[in-house]
Amino acid sequence: MMKLGILLCDDHYPDSIPTYGHYDDAFKRMFHGSVISHYETYRCFEQHYPAQPNECDIWIVTGSKWGVYDNEPWIRSVSEFVQRCHAQSRPLIGVCFGHQLIHHALGGEVTKSDKGWGMGVYPIDNLKNTQQGFTQPDAPNALNLIACHQDQVQEPAPAFSVIAGSDFCPIAITAKGQYVLTMQCHPEFTPDFLVQLVERLRDKAGNDTVDKAIESVRQFGGGDRDFVIRTLHQFVAQHSRVA
């Protein structure tokens, strides 16, 4: 069984924690039933970091309200740790901010998108061009996925393959070989969590954007969230030390 290191880059709003737990709890729930048996959370945004890439078998970089280009010492520290993991072929997963940070750390480009907020359950095309589980026989041609972001990867880091994308978000899911898998979506978010989150963003995103996001949840629920979670379980299983 494997140990997952959670590089926590934010936490939930305090008044949502009694209902949803801390942010790392969402990832622990997401990997329930996989080969992951132990978890270690490092609250990186509070400057709590792992010492070595071999402390855990696999690493995940979480979402965050910050941007990867923000001048924060902890963001630089996480980027340097990602570079060390990558140099040692330690398996890495990136979600939303984590997706962006991995590309940023490894030579890609991330900016605030001029297309505005990506919020709600939105569609992306599954290109089915890698072996990261998105080519399995039941893989949908289009994926409806939970998202909430303004920043986007504009240029992927060298040697990354784009697995899925759309006109709105061309670089939505990526992989590098068998060791790195990143995604702009939030498979750890449930539909009800997303609704309470986007309601908090009305002043920033505007009523029309938030209303459309909530309507997309009513229409699609969690979309293809379960499929992506199964794919993540397969990704961690291929790195298991258990034959």
Rank of each mutant, 00 (worst) to 15 (best):
residue 152 Q to H: 12
residue 219 Q to E: 06
residue 220 F to G: 03
residue 119 M to Y: 14
residue 169 C to H: 01
residue 215 E to F: 09
residue 114 D to E: 07
residue 118 G to C: 15
residue 123 P to M: 00
residue 177 G to F: 03
residue 202 R to C: 13
residue 112 K to G: 12
residue 152 Q to T: 08
residue 203 D to P: 05
residue 201 L to W: 13
residue 213 A to C: 09
residue 133 G to C: 02
residue 223 G to Q: 01
residue 152 Q to V: 03
residue 139 A to L: 04
residue 208 D to G: 13
residue 113 S to C: 10
residue 129 N to T: 12
residue 122 Y to E: 13
residue 146 I to Y: 00
residue 223 G to C: 02
residue 169 C to R: 05
residue 110 V to M: 04
residue 227 F to R: 14
residue 154 Q to N: 10
residue 124 I to N: 11
residue 140 P to T: 06
residue 216 S to V: 05
residue 135 T to E: 15
residue 221 G to Q: 02
residue 221 G to S: 05
residue 226 D to H: 06
residue 203 D to N: 10
residue 161 S to A: 04
residue 140 P to H: 08
residue 215 E to K: 13
residue 116 G to S: 08
residue 188 E to V: 13
residue 207 N to K: 07
residue 173 I to V: 09
residue 165 G to D: 08
residue 224 D to A: 09
residue 133 G to Y: 02
residue 211 D to N: 06
residue 133 G to A: 05
residue 203 D to A: 13
residue 226 D to I: 10
residue 220 F to N: 05
residue 218 R to Q: 14
residue 139 A to V: 03
residue 109 E to L: 10
residue 192 D to H: 04
residue 204 K to C: 11
residue 208 D to R: 11
residue 162 V to M: 04
residue 176 K to D: 12
residue 123 P to N: 00
residue 159 A to S: 15
residue 197 L to S: 10
residue 213 A to H: 04
residue 189 F to S: 07
residue 149 H to R: 09
